[in-house]
Design a protein around this nucleic acid. Structure first.
Length: 479
RNA sequence: GGCCCUAUCGUCUAGUGGCUAGGACAUCACCCUCUCACGGUGGAAACACGGGUUCGAAUCCCGUUGGGGUCACCA
């Protein structure tokens, strides 16, 4: 089994391309086949090396490694040979006709070009286009892996162009020549290629080969059910990366968009126990084309984020710390602390990550959250420190009480131990109204209305920094 | 417009002739709780429509409507 992903380097790796790559890769790995990356760079004007690099980088980021690599720009000899062959067999012809009359948007009657057909390029004449001599009244049937047989009538297919001159072969032609040459057995691609399929099947026949199996995947749609475009949201893999998505989440979500394992119970009814979390390795085992859906799917950022937070939570701390590294440039001073294990604030940083881990949906958010644990944060609005209808005197008393409790700590307590002892003290304070003790403490430590619990904050900041912050808050209250 | 694909909660989906139409995300309520998250429990929420076939249709057939793709000397 030989499969391929054939992106054209005219843009950054698109999420739709990534999904097609994933499905091809999964099948190849499952069947012990070969997964090929073929860069379709015959469009010399729009193809850019930058895009090619981006596509490769992000396929790797997803974990989709390839076994063979080709570039169409390096294979022109192959296309030229095939073109000459078809020309000599008069299965294609050269046309110098203009495809469209000026101002006319109707499709041209390309078959009419046949009356001026020639089979050799005229010297000195510009703009000869090679067209396929599409047969009349023939049925072409594509037995699609996801849709079943799709019927086409060749009368609906024009004499499509396959090359500009001898040295500029066009899409349908290069794809076919390459897929034959590379021995591609299965073509899994987007539904937008369905209309190309009969043309390519015709070319297979003309070149004396049997077409591969085709499988056309449903398309990814924006929330308004229109085509997924840059304006409608994130589409390129590199943007998902900078936003802080994990490849595990991306792979998992993409796999589920158009594919489903099916219910595990015999009744056929799904239950909460049904699996929706899959690693790449698990997908290799259970993925199958016959469970691919036929209809298009809307790309839902909210669910992707849900998967992302799930995988962030599941990451071991050291692993998570490593994944965070690319995001430090958004918070330069974090990089300094995180990078040096002997930095005085390094342990605090690690603890901050640990505390924020369960709260973050995106890696970039996590880095931002962690950055607020540094020393030089601004003192807060004293009014925020009051719990319910506490007076300034009561709040001061509360904070002083907290401070004496924290000052009495050994300083190396585990989080659970620390929480238990502080919680007990809070229960004894003010008839068990914990907020009277915990709210001012938490606000004094975080300078925020919303934050992790004061226990976690003390654990992260340490005894000394915690006392300093409480002292700072007290000073503000007294003025 | 021609050709092609497609149609279950807002979204992703389970379901292949008999189900109180199930799950997940999102949403709402409650619980947990000093706040925000996390977590837990519960609720609201769907078979596009019209004809058939059948004892019986979300499931099969036809049509309508909606959505999508494609109609380049791009890929």
């Amino acid at each position: 089994m030989r499969l391929r992903i054939a992106p054209s380097p005219t843009g950054y790796l698109h999420v739709g391309t990534a999904r097609a790559a994933l499905y091809n890769w999964l099948l190849a790995r499952q069947k012990g086949g070969i997964f090929i990356l073929r860069i379709e760079d015959t469009d010399k004007v729009r193809s850019k090396k930058e895009y090619e690099n981006d596509i490769m980088r992000h396929l790797k980021w997803l974990g989709l490694t390839w076994d063979e690599e080709y570039r169409q720009s390096e294979r022109y000899e192959l296309y030229r040979k095939a073109l000459l062959q078809l020309l000599s067999e008069k299965k294609v012809y050269i046309s110098y006709d203009e495809p469209h009359v000026e101002g006319d948007r109707r499709p041209a009657d390309t078959r009419a070009f046949r009356k001026n057909a020639v089979f050799e390029f005229q010297t000195g004449k510009q703009g000869g286009v090679v067209r396929f001599m599409t047969p009349d009244h023939e049925e072409v049937v594509c037995d699609d892996m996801v849709r079943g047989p799709i019927h086409f009538n060749t009368d609906d297919i024009e004499d499509f162009s396959i090359a500009k001159g001898l040295d500029e072969p066009l899409y349908n032609f290069v794809v076919t020549v390459d897929d034959i040459d590379l021995g591609i057995t299965d073509v899994i691609r987007g539904e937008d290629h369905i209309s190309n399929t009969p043309k390519q099947m015709l070319l297979y026949k003309a070149l004396g080969h049997t077409p591969p199996r085709f499988g056309h995947l449903p398309l990814l749609l924006a929330t308004d059910r229109s085509k997924l475009s840059k304006r409608k949201g994130t589409t390129s893999m590199k943007d998902f990366v900078t936003q802080g998505f994990l490849p595990e989440a991306m792979v998992n979500y993409l796999a589920l968009l158009g594919w489903h394992l099916g219910a595990s119970s015999e009744t056929g009814r799904a239950s909460a126990a049904d699996q929706e979390f899959f690693t790449l390795d698990e997908l290799v085992k259970v993925f199958s084309m016959d469970r691919v859906r036929k209809s298009n799917s809307v790309f839902d950022m909210a669910k992707l984020r849900y998967f992302n937070s799930h995988y962030i939570k599941a990451l071991p701390l050291d692993d998570l710390l490593k994944r965070l590294e690319p995001y430090y440039e958004q918070q330069p001073h974090v990089a300094e602390i995180a990078g040096a294990t002997n930095h005085p604030l390094h342990e605090r940083f690690r603890r901050a990550v640990q505390v924020e881990q369960s709260r973050a949906e995106l890696l970039s958010d996590l880095v931002t959250a962690v950055a607020s644990y540094r020393d030089e944060s601004q003192p807060c609005d004293p009014a925020m420190l009051h719990w319910k209808i506490m007076t300034t005197e009561e709040t001061i008393a509360s904070l002083q009480h907290s401070k004496s409790l924290i000052a009495g700590l050994r300083g190396d307590e585990e989080l659970a131990e620390l929480q238990a002892s502080l919680l007990q003290k809070a229960g004894e304070y003010k008839q068990g109204d914990r907020g009277a003790l915990l709210w001012p403490l938490r606000v004094a430590l975080s300078n925020k209305e919303k934050s992790p619990s004061p226990f976690e904050l003390v654990w992260v900041l340490g005894k000394d920094e915690s006392c300093d912050r409480i002292e700072g808050a007290l000073a503000r209250l007294r003025t």
